[in-house]
Computed example of a mutant assay.
Amino acid sequence: MSAPYGLLAEFATADLLLEAVRRARANGCRQVEAYAPFAVDGLAEALGFRSHAVQAWTFAGAVAGGLGTYLLQWYSAVIDYPLNIGGRPLNSWPSFIPPTFELAVLGAAFAAVLSMLIANGLPRLVHPLFGAPEFDLASRNRFFLCLRASDPTYHVGRSRQMLDDLHPLLLREVAA
């Protein structure tokens, strides 16, 4: 058998999953994964998500798109190919605003999608949990908690006992 990926526990309700996550975090586990068929209030906070990397990258994409567009228009109208048409100034910034806004939105959208994919570790076509026959219920009506074996506090016996005290429907070791 290959190296273990972690310990998978199946719960019937979202409240039981939330309690299991809180108990695991209270016992020092830091690499805890939770899977639910719908959004569970308080689950992200219980798992310890505090990062705002997607928002920061989205803002950076918007700034880069907007600034790049504005500078491209300014350079082409003022430096590279200046045309004095109708006595208007070369740096006619009001006419630069619509494309600047549009490409700022486009840059933000691209950055948001790309940073979300990177933060989620996607695309990942094969995951060790896909080998568990019951795991397909995570998208229908069951709630799963996985304690990763790569966590420094992970110990098969203690972790199994901690999860067993919560009376899961299933408790299984998953191979990597």
Score class of each variant (00 low, 15 high):
F101W: 13
H155Q: 15
F135Q: 03
L147F: 05
V40R: 07
R160T: 13
A26K: 03
S95Q: 12
L72N: 06
L7V: 02
D15F: 05
A111Q: 05
Y75Q: 13
A108W: 06
G87F: 04
R140K: 12
I97Q: 09
T58H: 10
Y70M: 12
F130V: 01
A138S: 12
P82Y: 06
A44L: 10
R22Y: 06
Y81K: 07
L83S: 14
F96R: 04
F11Y: 08
G107W: 07
V40L: 08
S150L: 05
W74K: 12
R124C: 14
L147N: 03
G107V: 11
D80R: 10
A64R: 08
L90D: 01
S139M: 01
A138W: 02
L170K: 08
V174Y: 05
S139Y: 01
G121Q: 10
V105N: 06
A108V: 02
L72D: 04
A175D: 11
A44H: 09
A119C: 11
F11K: 02
S159N: 12
P82L: 05
V105I: 15
F135A: 00
P128Q: 07
V78K: 08
E10L: 00
I85F: 14
P133S: 05
A24E: 00
G48R: 00
A60I: 09
G107I: 10
W57H: 14
A104I: 09
Q161Y: 10
G107T: 03
L90F: 00
T58Y: 13
G157Q: 08
I79L: 15
F96W: 01
A46Y: 04
L83D: 09
D15M: 00
P99V: 01
R160H: 15
A176V: 10
Q161H: 14
Y70V: 03
R142T: 02
A176T: 14
V113I: 06
R158S: 15
L125R: 10
N84T: 11
T153K: 09
